[in-house]
Design a protein around this nucleic acid. Sequence first.
DNA 1: CTCATTTACGGTCGTCGTAAATATG
DNA 2: CATATTTACGACGACCGTAAATGAG
Lengths: 118, 118
Amino acid sequence: MDAQKLQVFVAVAEELHFGRAADRLHLAQPYLSRSVRALEAELGADLFRRTTRKVELTPAGTALLPHARALLARTDEARGAVAAARDGRSGRVRISFAGPSAHVVVGQLLARCASSTH
Amino acid sequence: MDAQKLQVFVAVAEELHFGRAADRLHLAQPYLSRSVRALEAELGADLFRRTTRKVELTPAGTALLPHARALLARTDEARGAVAAARDGRSGRVRISFAGPSAHVVVGQLLARCASSTH
DNA sequence: CTCATTTACGGTCGTCGTAAATATG
DNA sequence: CATATTTACGACGACCGTAAATGAG
């Protein structure tokens, strides 16, 4: 149940058509068929009821869809959090001072921190 | 960034020791090293600062940890939702009637549904 | 020297494409 | 018969183990 297969599932669930979903993902459509089938095997439940003329979600598929979307969104969030930390847009800040006037400024900062947290 | 690698990351982050994490996951510890390294490559950020004597989280690793736990929890939720739908513990209910008295009962049901939803 | 991580290497399985087969309306 | 899904098959890479190499204290 990796992100790739979930994206395949969501695409097919939204298009209700393996060919269009394949175009959207720039993948060959036989692969979508196998991907969905692998997901169904892994979860032990059919996700679509399909003939060559109609594709529709089963109850299990309907149940999975919102969870799949949430998982994909959360994955992006996680990526973003790591990127932010890497680029220093979050996490601990390190501050250095130099020069005679610095001691005064640091003293003021420390006083303000102490008063704001207590 | 599949569930497997996230579990490896969480285990190492919790143990701060590749060997113990490997034991916990019943995996060979060289594989953990490569798994984490692959995750780091994929995310473009180091997750641990490690020597042979000490393993500690980087800011990026610290940022990832809660997201990784959330993703694993959500994955389990998704599995559970599908299992519930498969086993009929959720989703739409189909009811059939047969016999002469059925029509009366169905009429009463429909009346109650109509009055309760409006 | 010892303990822990990493690199090297190999077998097996999953990914993903193209081409042929199958099934539905 | 036309259109859509599935199966067959093959190349490539990922997974995951064992054994050897590397590095820190």
